[in-house]
Design a binder for these strands. Sequence first.
DNA 1: GTCTATAGGCTGATAGAC
DNA 2: GTCTATCAGCCTATAGAC
Lengths: 205, 205
Amino acid sequence: MNVRSVIDGDMARTTGSHSDITGPRIREVALRLFAAEGYAAVSMRKIAAEVGVQAGALYNYTPDKQSLLFDLMHSHMEDLLAARSEAGTTGTPTDRLEAFTRFHISYHEERPHEIFIAYMELRNLTPENFAVIEELRGKYEDELSGILRAGVEAGEFTLVDPRVATRAIISMLNGVTTWYRREGRLTLTEVETIYWDMVRKAVGA
Amino acid sequence: MNVRSVIDGDMARTTGSHSDITGPRIREVALRLFAAEGYAAVSMRKIAAEVGVQAGALYNYTPDKQSLLFDLMHSHMEDLLAARSEAGTTGTPTDRLEAFTRFHISYHEERPHEIFIAYMELRNLTPENFAVIEELRGKYEDELSGILRAGVEAGEFTLVDPRVATRAIISMLNGVTTWYRREGRLTLTEVETIYWDMVRKAVGA
DNA sequence: GTCTATAGGCTGATAGAC
DNA sequence: GTCTATCAGCCTATAGAC
């Protein structure tokens, strides 16, 4: 019983060829399920069921489950770095720090699944895959480190330890996705402003 | 082949009765494995193997795997609240905030597995168990909220939104366990001081 | 309290028909 | 490209011997 054979209007077969939509659908579903239940708790059968195909069909799109996780994390990090490089990177260190803060919050608010996976499923990557993701994450954090160091050198910031401050700020900003809901009492812009106020003061700007 | 039969000096049996040590050992091993690999990825067999018993023996100590996770999280939250209530809760809001900051960092640094599980395995709790843990977590966060509100009222802190600030500070402090290592370049007291400097400035004290 | 054995079911991945 | 069927192995939890 395959509903799509009817929708397709192709009476001669019960199976369909849908490479153009099945691929993205698999990624979409896997992302959501991995984020909600965790990589280890989600079976290939469960992903396939939500996509609307049989488990075997998934292997036309990914060599194995691990590659599926890695691809999701890898794309996310690449997209994040690309989006970041388009955002404002000029002005005083204070301007750049504000731009970074607002960028980080708004980018991740639109992609709660991605950030959840990126920080929670690291331990489920093979060592080789882990190394790749860690390097990309390091690149992103270096952007913030660079701003903080520039601010200290320019005398705009008073920071005891820029490296620790980088970690502290990233952790603080990541926390937003654990509680923020669009339906809540605050708009995203308000949240950005509240966090920026705290970040600005924390670095002594 | 059971090594303990020799250690026990009890030649008549190959199995032993070790309720006094097996129980704590199971909790210890489960805590470590859940933290390192995640609840869903750790089998009862794996726990049993590390403890040195067969899988069936675990069920003398826990009705099921879910209860094991819940008990670990529940004990952790109870211990955390008890330890917190013993720590300094007097003085000005600024004093109390410093005490909270240092307490949170040092308490969790000594229990990296517990905090990891407490924040990562919430989604693997049944709804009933989740509600219990969430309430305890709320109690803990209320301590910080209370300090922040008191500081705002006393005019010591300048905060746009104490509720958001509570989340932000907790997230920031939790981040310490993801990177801090005792062998590293900083002592725990130095880390506490760096974070306290940032928290203090962030709240405008 | 621990063991062995097992029930009943799910797992990731593959083979071959269409 | 998707299906069905299947392999070999792992899973949680239980039963009954000791």
